[in-house]
């Protein structure tokens, strides 16, 4: 499937000697090989030098019949010393005005206009939101993440297929509204609620408690203002959530396995499991 790219040994050795990590050196050495092979095929790589670009722009202009002189964009680095090659708003406006020529453009706001905020090109650099995201240790989704996902998918798929081959889904007798079965239970994920119905008025167990529970669950991020995600800094939150989950799990287990005919308490080893999935 994938054609393995050989490593440019010279580049690799140089990078390793310079103290670059093995992974990055390998990637850069591969890139060097590809670049070489592309140059060998006659492809031109990278941006064109400024003088060539300027000439091309000039040709384009004259072919369009427009005025103005071409100004090649500086590529930074060797620049004026104000903020590492960044242009001041005035310089930028001057350049844009020069490149647009003296004729007013047919669309948009003229470069000399006061309404500079209408033109993105004229927004001063300080006005643009600077995103200061930290570089993180990242890997390519393909193949790393997709491979893990594919294996998980296969595992879950085969587990279900095997279960479905050996275990049949239940199918009782025809529904009969006049005949209440001895064991009468909701699906397992609602057994916690059904168990609560034993202890509280239906208004409390069936409406208030699940309603409050869901609202509380949704409100969690707005209640928990602790900025840390480390377990040692959020013992109260973790304890509360563990308590919440354990509470429901116990209710579901009691309702599912320890309740029999007439929803009375039974031990599964005396009267069997009154539970159907």
């Amino acid at each position: 499937m994938a054609e393995e790219v050989s490593i440019d040994q010279e580049v690799y050795d140089r990078l390793i000697a310079a103290g670059t990590s093995e992974r990055i050196a390998r990637a850069k050495a591969k890139a060097a090989t590809v670049r070489k092979s592309k140059i060998a095929e006659g492809a031109s790589l990278g941006p064109r030098p400024a003088d060539q670009a300027g000439k091309a722009l000039e040709e384009y202009r004259s072919s369009q019949g427009g005025g103005g002189t071409a100004v090649a964009t500086k590529t930074g680095g060797d620049d004026t010393g104000n903020g590492g090659g960044r242009l001041t708003p005035d310089e930028r406006a001057a350049r844009v005005a020069a490149s647009l020529g003296t004729q007013p453009s047919s669309i948009g706001v003229p470069a000399a206009s006061e309404h500079t905020h209408r033109l993105l090109a004229l927004v001063p650099p300080a006005g643009i939101q600077q995103v200061q995201s930290k570089q993180m240790d990242k890997v390519y989704t393909w193949p790393h993440l997709l491979l893990v996902e594919f294996v998980a998918l296969l595992a879950m798929g085969s587990l279900l297929l095997i279960a479905s081959f050996f275990l049949d889904a239940p199918l009782g007798s025809l529904a009969n509204p006049n005949q209440v079965p001895a064991i009468n239970k909701a699906p397992w994920y609602f057994m916690g609620l059904q168990e609560l119905l034993r202890y509280f008025h239906p208004m409390v167990a069936g409406v208030t408690m699940p309603g409050v529970g869901v609202v509380m669950l949704m409100a969690v991020p707005y209640i928990d203002k602790n900025p840390s995600a480390r377990p040692e800094n959020r013992k109260v939150a973790n304890l509360a959530f563990t308590f919440f989950m354990t509470f429901w799990t116990i209710l579901v287990i009691i309702g599912s396995f320890l309740r029999g005919a007439g929803y009375e308490w039974v031990w599964p080893w005396t009267q069997g499991l009154g539970f159907t999935l």
Binding site: G172, V180, P202
Partner: peptide, 18 residues
């Protein structure tokens, strides 16, 4: 539409009435 389905759903929907 078997007994299991009918009565499980009866239990669930009775709560909604409250």
């Amino acid at each position: 539409w078997d007994q299991l389905a009918l009565w499980a759903v009866t239990v669930g929907t009775n709560m909604m009435g409250y």
